[in-house]
């Protein structure tokens, strides 16, 4: 109906007119967080094109380049902006590739947790009764354990099932499942609560009078109306998932050293902290901290911006 350019203009007009955009432009902190997040995302997902070296290419590594300090320190090499690690890998490139893995695992884990949580929350809320009680009691029990414990448990079980050798092939998938399974409860509880509210509204009853079967009503009518709060949780959970992945990798149950994520890098660097090679752990640590902070601030802002009571 509309020309593509007209559509774009229309979209921009609507976006720039919205409350969210307005509240976005109100806070310098939020804009800064968004900028930092954007830069990190570009750096991480553009790593294969932007990074000066490929740290996964073992042939290009020179052990004689190991432990080079950042350029501004004595003995720094212009080739390695942030220095190198114990195997002579360029730290900047490793961090870029590492944050790509961290973000990827974080995103997939959040999507997995959302999928599980929304589905179970929707089923529990819509069906009610014994199904509801069962799902929510499982959720309550799981909530009484720290998330990292669940993730460690899932990781341990998968190692037992897959065997150590095959486990490293599936390390990323196992991490996603482990982190996802430790965070689904929040989604399930939020969605169930909203479903209970929406279910009693008359538009759901109208759909029932039309004769729509239950599952169709739950998906077509109820689901779109309960997703708002879920998006906010997802943003905040992204930061949590990245941290959890880093923690697991730091503890050595996450990704193997050949495919280092930010957490793995921090662990590797940790061994050299006291022998003076501080940069190996400080730079990935700083990147992780700033990234998580920025994403968290964005999530906080989104929660407030979408909450009509705080406007």
């Amino acid at each position: 109906m509309m020309l593509p350019t007209a559509r774009v203009i229309e979209f921009w007009r609507k976006t720039s007119d919205s409350d969210i955009y307005w509240s976005f432009t109100r806070s310098k902190l939020v804009m800064l967080s968004a900028l930092i997040t954007l830069i990190f995302f570009i750096g991480a997902f553009g790593a294969p094109w932007l990074a000066p070296h490929n740290p996964f290419d073992l042939a290009s590594l020179e052990l004689s380049d190991a432990f080079k300090p950042p350029v501004w320190e004595d003995g720094g090499d212009a080739k390695y902006l942030l220095g190198t690690d114990d195997q002579g890998r360029d730290l900047l490139s490793t961090i870029m590739y590492g944050s790509r893995i961290s973000l990827m695992v974080g995103f997939l884990a959040v999507i997995f947790a959302m999928g599980v949580g929304i589905t179970l929350g929707l089923v529990a809320g819509y069906l009610g009764g014994a199904v509801d009680s069962f799902i929510m009691r499982v959720a309550d029990v799981q909530l009484s354990f720290p998330a990292i414990l669940i993730a460690l448990l899932v990781d341990g079980v998968s190692r037992g099932i897959l065997g150590e050798a095959r486990h490293s092939d599936f390390a990323e998938a196992v991490l996603v499942v482990a982190i996802g399974l430790s965070y689904w409860v929040q989604y399930a509880r939020t969605v169930r609560g909203s479903v209970l509210v929406e279910k009693s509204k008359e538009y759901v009853q109208a759909a029932r009078v039309i004769g729509l079967p239950g599952p169709l009503i739950a998906i077509r009518h109820v689901l779109p109306n309960v997703l708002g709060p879920v998006l906010v949780i997802a943003t905040i959970n992204l930061a949590l998932a990245i941290i959890t992945e880093a923690t697991l990798s730091f503890l050595g149950v996450g990704l193997p050293p050949t495919e280092p994520s930010l957490g793995t890098l921090i662990r590797i660097g940790n061994d050299f902290l006291f022998s003076g090679e501080w940069w190996i752990t400080i730079f990935p640590g700083a990147v992780l901290a700033i990234l998580v902070l920025a994403v968290n601030l964005l999530g906080d802002w989104l929660r407030d911006a979408l909450n009509p009571k705080l406007r």
Partner: peptide, 28 residues
């Protein structure tokens, strides 16, 4: 068919009016 009391709750806020009215037609 049924007409409900609260016109603010009886229409799905995320659906366009056309889709709301068309729902019985499409479903059946």
């Amino acid at each position: 068919q049924m007409i409900f009391q609260d016109p603010y709750a009886s229409l799905n806020p995320r659906w366009r009016v056309g889709d709301i009215v068309a729902e019985p037609l499409r479903f059946r």
